[in-house]
């Protein structure tokens, strides 16, 4: 395990030296990796670092406000509302890899804009050790800003956590005093709720997914899942009141895991499952059916796309 004290000291020195008096940006997603990298770099160089948070419109309920609050102490923080632009790019796109690509491209455009505005010549990234190995694999292209360095042509890239594993990053986050909502944050994919909506991503389906995910996180808190969420799979017939509806099918997923590499579907009580379906189908008009995903990883992945 990493020695946190000496790691933080070394990382700060490395960042200060690499940046000199130049301006750097970091893509802040609110996840533990980028948040910790941002906090480390901000401690090292203050407002020379411009953390950029892009609200894609694909975030969880209340997430953007939460980020704004947690990182309020960074005067240089930029919050970009780009939801219309992301939904425009996603219109008509149904293939999972194409979706990720469209989102990645738009992310790059958003950061490019800010980088030019603030004249950033350096990029700080929260890359961790498994990212460096996994990016060679073929499971999923999961790096939002993977193509950013090539496009913007930064003079330098600083990756202070390149040798750390996720649990070590969490230790560093705790050491830096990042609030629990960050240091213990449930993993959330870069492309956001888009990978939890099968088929075309529309504001309407994302709204269903967001509300249902909120219910799942709330109801399953006691089970301490590693990750728990809802996905919108497609449509099926239902009957609400005396009306036939062709509503969304919402899948509930709740898994326990150490590192996300393997996962076990959690064993939930029947009463819990019933409360979930009742709240999801009962309070979200467009939902006619709720299913629970019992598949482990492998053969399934944790996320749907």
């Amino acid at each position: 395990m990493v020695d946190v004290d000496s790691f933080v000291e070394d990382a700060r020195a490395e960042i200060s030296e690499a940046l000199g008096d130049e301006t750097a940006i970091i893509a802040l997603s609110g996840g533990v990796d980028s948040s910790t990298a941002a906090a480390l770099a901000y401690e090292a160089v203050g407002d020379q670092l411009v953390p950029v948070y892009v609200d894609t419109g694909l975030m969880r309920k209340g997430e953007t406000d939460e980020i704004r609050e947690v990182f309020d102490y960074m005067d240089s923080l930029r919050v970009v509302d780009a939801s219309d632009r992301f939904f425009d790019e996603l219109a008509g796109v149904t293939d999972p890899e194409e979706k990720r690509h469209a989102i990645g491209e738009q992310f790059i455009r958003e950061f490019e804009t800010v980088a030019e505005e603030v004249d950033a010549t350096q990029l700080v990234q929260g890359t961790i050790y498994p990212d460096r190995i996994e990016s060679e694999g073929t499971i999923k292209s999961h790096h939002n800003v993977g193509g950013l360095p090539e496009r913007v042509g930064f003079e330098g890239i600083v990756e202070p956590m390149r040798d750390l594993y996720k649990d070590e990053v969490r230790e560093v986050a705790r050491h830096l005093g990042l609030e629990e909502i960050i240091s213990e944050r449930m993993p959330f994919p870069g492309p956001g709720l888009a990978v939890r909506v099968i088929g075309e991503v529309t504001p309407e389906k994302v709204a269903v997914c967001r509300e249902a995910t909120h219910i799942v996180e709330d109801e399953l808190e006691a089970y301490e899942p590693w990750q728990a969420f809802a996905a919108v799979l497609g449509r099926a017939t239902g009957v609400k009141g005396d009306n036939r509806v062709h509503g969304h099918v919402v899948a509930v997923r709740s898994v326990e895991s150490r590192d996300g590499m393997t996962a076990r579907a959690q064993e939930l009580e029947w009463e819990t499952l019933q409360r979930l379906q009742s709240r999801i189908a009962g309070t979200i008009d467009e939902v006619s059916r709720v299913v629970y995903d019992v598949t482990h990883k492998p053969p399934a992945t944790i996320e749907y796309e």
Binding site: P130, E134, M261
Partner: peptide, 25 residues
């Protein structure tokens, strides 16, 4: 030796944290 498996880095991790062992990937 990495044959591009998704778990390769976990083999590295496990060995890295073991006493009396040095490991490279």
């Amino acid at each position: 030796v990495d044959n591009h498996g998704q778990f390769t880095h976990l083999e590295h991790r496990l060995l890295r944290d073991m006493d009396g062992v040095t490991v490279d990937l």
